[in-house]
Nucleic acid binder design. Sequence first.
RNA 1: GGUCGGAUGGCCGAGUGGCUAGGCACGGGUCUGCAAAACCCUCUACAGCGGUUCGAAUCCGCUUCCGACCUCCA
Length: 490
Amino acid sequence: MTPLKIYDTYTREIRPFEPVNAPFVGIYVCGPTVYGHPHLGHARGPVVFDVLHRFLVHKGYKVRFVRNVTDVGHLVNDADEGEDKIAKKAKVEQLEPMEIAQFYTDSYHNMLLSMNVKPASIEPRASGHIIEQIEMIKTIIDKGFAYESNGSVYFDVLSYSKSHDYGKLSGRVIEDLIAGAGNEARELEGQDEKKNANDFALWKKAGPEHIMQWPSPWSNGFPGWHIECSAMSRKYLGDTFDIHGGGMDLLFPHHESEIAQSMACTGHQPARYWMHHNMITVNGQKMAKSLNNGISIDEFFSGNHHLLEKAYSPMTLKFFILQAHYRGTLDFSNTALQASEKGLNRLLTAEDTLQSIKTGNSSDIHIGELAQKLENALNEDLNTPILIAELFDVVTKINQLASGQLNISESDLSELRKLYSTYVFDILGLKKESEASSEKIQGVMQLLIDLRQEAKQDKNYALSDTIRKKLSEIGIELKDGKEGTSFTIN
RNA sequence: GGUCGGAUGGCCGAGUGGCUAGGCACGGGUCUGCAAAACCCUCUACAGCGGUUCGAAUCCGCUUCCGACCUCCA
């Protein structure tokens, strides 16, 4: 098998993937902050890293895939004085904070489930790892890279940058950060407690209004923005693991800070490869809560949003995401979505066609060559659009086989079926969405189809067309083919 | 203001210094009582201006436009 190559944001180059300890692979992906329903943008990361996950498994690696849930720790810095994001919402809705977290975690899981994303091996919650975070903070203080101030603990960026390269991942220069150009009038809470404006919180002392707080050596409070990922990735994957993933918007300060924390604590780079997927945009702009241009997943699947011409299925969204390379921005539009919908249908129809091909003695299909092409596509930094293009070429071949323009042997056909479903279902993780029709429905439909057939034979087209039309109105499409009539339920 | 990235045919989106993905739409066709679906064929683009080169959409420079990050963010 030819090796996978991936683009590493840290070194800004494409490198062959070499696990620390093959065949084991450790992946950590930053999950959501569960304070709202997931929107379209939230779907991209899970889909991209799911393909990575599945492809590595396909290549024979034993993967431990960790995706966290952030249920504490992210500060709000608008309006009030840095309340915990989740605690703030809880007050508004008069609910327990953990109730909120659970509610939106479930919502997130529903999205993953509907999009056929494999569950993570471990899904740690920040609130369940307060002790690990405190321990890590202690070590960082001991090593002289953090200091306590008025019950809070801050990471000492200046001190750290004397011996380490703070800013390398995100391409930032420490001097520029200190100069803080363009960052005027940004009043973060406790700014005066810091030695330097760029120092970030490892632990924050909580006021009495904070519902989520824990005891620590420094104060009753809560962990800072970035420490959870460092603590949890270390706990489950070790000081240095293979791949750390997330959205590009997390590059700075989140991932930059993670590196600093881990280096300060363990002396090791936390991850060998940093993978960042790009954003989904609407009219060229990032979909973000603050821009108010978000389409929630529920709205997307129900079509209930002014930007949507219709409802789109989870697989349509997945295919739409997969048709673009993960490092490029992906612009939302109805026409693009509808193109994906049809393309996906073509891909899945071919899988059916594949089941009814007649075999011969000769074979025009070179399975080995084909398999290599498909694998090579993903080997090149997970190039799913190329893979999909190759698969469409296979679709054309499948159709030619079905129409007798090409021949295939029994064994090659069996191989082709396996290969096709491996890539479409196992690696891309697509699935057929047509409702699993019960036997009773099947029976009723067959009855209608037979009755309509009789009408057609009697040249009673008015009746046969009425049957077709009425069924269409309730979302059942009849398709008259050579082999008889079939139906689909929308 | 700083840093980084991008401009590809009607739309979405790959990609390589020469052999010019793929999907969708459009157009034509097969099939059909008619449709729909499905299938086949067709459509040749790389922001502008310079430069390097035998040859550039692909490398370099400039210009214009767009975006991301610098603040919670997938």
